[in-house]
Write a protein that binds this DNA or RNA. Structure first.
Lengths: 345, 345
DNA sequence: ATGGTTTGTGCAAACGTTTTAACAAAGTAG
DNA sequence: CTACTTTGTTAAAACGTTTGCACAAACCAT
């Protein structure tokens, strides 16, 4: 059907090997031959068959990204999209393709990635965030298959990973509120089995402890964040006898739920409650009021993940130098956080 | 390195062909042999090499989705994510993998897809929305490569596509406002070179014309929607001597910009301005106030697109029966739209 | 001239499958 | 018992590349 290396060879009156070598810029090909062959390739509309190439080179020039199952991170969608963009952009630059895969359950997820890995369809995998005992991590680790984790693994701290220093990020965010004079600070977390939730929680606790502020468990909410649980969280929190004046919220999306809850209850932001959240999605800026948020460089995170993975795939067994990349974060202050009610400045 | 069909054959004391046939459930294999071979496969941990399979079968069992270049549809990110989920889910069910690709410019985009298509790395492609003269459509069309368009092509109405009836959707949305008593209705559109923008605009116009309402060009805004252009659009619109009492907005994300603009200007929604928008992203519900939005079934759209494409890929040349799928939409009324100032009920 | 290196090319074997054609063995009908 | 069909299996040729080895020709010091 379509034109092969042999057709080109025949027409150019050289052997297939020569054509192949022209393709890969082999140094021992004469300029004249190279030019001729290239001309003919152009003329005949030759394009190498990537499958055949893969078969012999035992390398696919593609990586896969495992999209976590939807349910538990509905609220991370926008973040994922940015991440994926970064991954795809970098992979393209390195000449890699990106396969995207997912499963409806954890079991399906590992099954999907097993198919790709076992079928030698990809050279490496990037995992988007990890649960506490992620079976996919387990699988890849045991198969010794190259992969990079966007996030942090508790069980395997030595794993190739790209991450935000979430403890520090949460610490910084809390410090921001504290520096504004807030002394009663609550926390709205994500699903407790996700490492990122745990880390942010820890940063929050540390900042409060260090500042000698009260750490009240009833100001801490964690859970799946669906439609109206932001509302419910707020209605619970705000009906306490003693209410926080500032809140850390684990993700901008969740913050939307929170804001809506507060609006319905008649509270005003930031006058009644200051909010700082995380991820700095495009939404944060468009919210009313615009949300103070810790930018974690989602695109950059993806970009680096892809880069790290591809480097790992391409270097044989010599130890990877740095095993854990931290992407810097930075707090973007907007209107949702203001001085505490008892003014200081 | 890894175990091949030949290794299994040797150990099972049959020929490679037999193993291959066991794999594909060939009817002429005896139950006994099949069982034995399967056992050995299991025992040795055999997994077929998909590349080799592809090479001979000339089919890759994968499709690609072309992510439009980021700039112009920042606001569609969330929508795309849903779409992709649908595509990936359906593809997985049909045993297909999904490759995702993009380019920084239109030229790069077509280059990226050309690589995949020419390299026979995918069996089909799904395009997410189309510009007016999309070069990717042009390329695929001319190559006679199977693809499905999520959206509508002006130039090629006969193309395989899955779409919302955007004219009708916009019409319905406008009717909703009209039925609430609004007589002054504006429109905030998307980039004018996108077909979806044009269609929604048309539905808006039609509804107003039909109802005999004034169609004022200064109530119509279109353009790239970035950070503060929502704000600017509103500040322009609301400073007109005669202001609309209701607005159609092309996308929930854009609506966020609009709402923020209105908030800053001191207008209240829906009291001062009713808003109906499109896509019904998860955000719509979380907004303050929650946004009335036309749900276009993004996931379903992606799911159907994938299904349609794969069917097309797998049936040879017999004409595809229905060439254009319309996914039903439905208006979800929330708090952003209310009776017009002059009450009727 | 001579031997040694460099340069340019081709042969053929691999990569791991599928599939066509061939064939032996076993079953079936007359 | 023979001729024909069915059943189960195999050998070998593809699929389109890459690459190690071989080798001739050209170049370069002696």
């Amino acid at each position: 059907m379509s034109v092969t290396i042999k057709d080109v060879a025949r027409k150019a009156d050289v052997s297939p090997s020569t054509v192949s070598r022209v393709l890969s810029n082999h140094p021992r090909i004469s300029a004249a031959t190279a030019r001729k062959v290239r001309e003919i390739m152009e003329e005949m509309g030759y394009h190498p068959n990537l499958m055949a190439k893969s078969l012999v080179s035992k390398t696919t020039k593609s990586i896969c990204v495992i999209l976590p199952k939807p349910a538990e991170e509905l609220f991370l969608n926008l973040f994922f999209m940015e991440l994926i963009r970064g991954i795809v952009a970098q992979a393209a630059r390195s000449g890699y393709d990106v396969l995207i895969s997912s499963g409806a359950s954890e079991a399906e997820e590992v099954e999907a990635v097993a198919r790709l890995v076992n079928g030698r369809r990809v050279d490496g995998a990037v995992l988007l965030y990890s649960r506490k005992d992620d079976p996919v991590v387990e699988f890849l680790k045991q198969r010794e298959f190259p992969f990079v984790l966007v996030g942090r693994s508790e069980r395997y701290p030595d794993i190739l990973s790209v991450d935000t220093d979430n403890v520090q990020a949460a610490y910084d965010a809390a410090r921001h509120l504290i520096s504004l004079g807030h002394e009663r600070i609550g926390f709205v977390g994500g699903p407790p089995n996700m490492v990122v939730s745990m880390d942010r929680m820890q940063g929050y606790r540390r900042a409060l402890e260090e500042a000698g502020l009260p750490l009240r468990e009833d100001w801490i909410v964690e859970g799946e964040f669906l439609q109206d649980s932001g509302y419910r969280a707020m209605s619970m929190l705000m009906s306490l006898p003693e209410r926080p004046s500032g809140m850390l919220v684990v993700d901008d999306f969740v913050t939307f739920g929170v804001i809506r809850g507060l609006n319905e209850l008649g509270y005003r932001i930031p006058q009644d409650l200051s909010i700082v959240s995380f991820n700095n999605l495009a939404l944060a800026e468009l919210s009313s009021p615009p949300i103070s948020s810790v930018d974690i460089g989602s695109y950059h995170l993806g970009y680096t993940a892809s880069q790290t993975l591809i480097r790992a795939v391409e270097t044989p067994r010599e130890e990877q130098t740095s095993v854990r990349h931290i992407i810097p974060h930075r707090l973007i202050v907007r209107e949702s956080s203001l001085f505490a009610p008892v003014r200081k400045a």
